[in-house]
Simulated assay, not measured.
Amino acid sequence: MARVAVVTGGTRGIGEAISIALKDMGMQVAATYAGNEERAKEFADRTGIKAYKFDVADHQACIDGIAAIEGDLGPVDVLVNNAGITRDTTMKRMDHAKWQDVIDTNLGGCFNMAKAVFEGMQSRGYGRIVNIGSINGQAGQYGQVNYAAAKSGIHGFTKALAQEGARNNVTVNAIAPGYIDTDMVAAVPPDVLGKIIAKIPVNRLGKASEIARGVAFLVGEDAGFVTGSTLSINGGQHMY
């Protein structure tokens, strides 16, 4: 029977590439989205992957959303926490809402979704969770104290939860992408983007498909000895 995978923020950008890669592995995939109905419909029609609308920052919505997905597809074996937002500005200009929105979605969403599936994975003796962090959670970034804090938190969350799941064959890993050619990065002013690319040793932006290949490895049946790890995919921009 095919494994069931959930990809949050799975209808656009990196999430879309991950959803398609997991489907290509033979999994039944559910992609979640928060608001862009038109894009979600286009994605579902084009890929045949069912899209489910709920906000990962809303704890009860995640519990209900997973219940709906499991009712349609069966127990969730794979969770990819990819959903994320930005509210970039300096500390001087950042109000509490910009801080809290990013923390609630980017970091809180990981807790909410993991909480909804983790116990079931443990009881069945199998699970794969991959959390999408960021190079900026590792190295920091000017004007992103909210985003960097949330993404850095994801890396700590990953290591702690991995210890809880290990004995039940539930692995928990993270991927820290560098700058990837997505809509989010396309919104960066061209002069700023040029300076960013100049600092990447491979001299280009990454592709969403390159992140998806990393996820595909970590969620594989034969990746059970990899847990608590962070895989950096950043073109050599940040090494440690």
Score class of each variant (00 low, 15 high):
residue 2 A to K: 14
residue 3 R to I: 08
residue 10 G to Y: 01
residue 14 I to T: 06
residue 15 G to S: 04
residue 15 G to E: 03
residue 18 I to V: 15
residue 24 D to P: 10
residue 30 A to R: 09
residue 32 T to Q: 01
residue 33 Y to K: 07
residue 41 K to M: 05
residue 42 E to C: 01
residue 43 F to K: 02
residue 57 A to H: 11
residue 58 D to G: 02
residue 58 D to E: 09
residue 62 C to D: 05
residue 68 A to K: 15
residue 71 G to W: 14
residue 73 L to Y: 03
residue 75 P to L: 08
residue 75 P to Q: 07
residue 80 V to W: 01
residue 81 N to E: 07
residue 82 N to F: 14
residue 82 N to P: 12
residue 84 G to V: 05
residue 88 D to A: 01
residue 89 T to E: 08
residue 89 T to Y: 00
residue 100 Q to L: 12
residue 106 N to A: 04
residue 111 F to A: 14
residue 111 F to G: 14
residue 114 A to K: 07
residue 116 A to P: 07
residue 116 A to H: 11
residue 116 A to Q: 02
residue 119 E to F: 05
residue 122 Q to K: 15
residue 123 S to K: 15
residue 124 R to S: 13
residue 127 G to A: 06
residue 130 V to T: 06
residue 130 V to N: 02
residue 132 I to F: 05
residue 134 S to Y: 06
residue 139 A to C: 08
residue 139 A to N: 10
residue 144 Q to E: 13
residue 146 N to M: 14
residue 149 A to E: 06
residue 154 I to W: 03
residue 155 H to V: 14
residue 160 A to F: 14
residue 162 A to H: 11
residue 164 E to W: 02
residue 164 E to N: 10
residue 172 V to N: 05
residue 176 A to T: 13
residue 184 M to I: 12
residue 185 V to K: 06
residue 200 I to M: 03
residue 203 N to V: 03
residue 204 R to Y: 08
residue 204 R to N: 09
residue 208 A to L: 08
residue 209 S to P: 07
residue 213 R to C: 05
residue 219 V to H: 00
residue 222 D to E: 14
residue 224 G to E: 13
residue 231 L to H: 08
residue 232 S to L: 05
residue 232 S to P: 04
residue 237 Q to E: 13
residue 239 M to P: 01
residue 239 M to F: 01
residue 239 M to T: 12
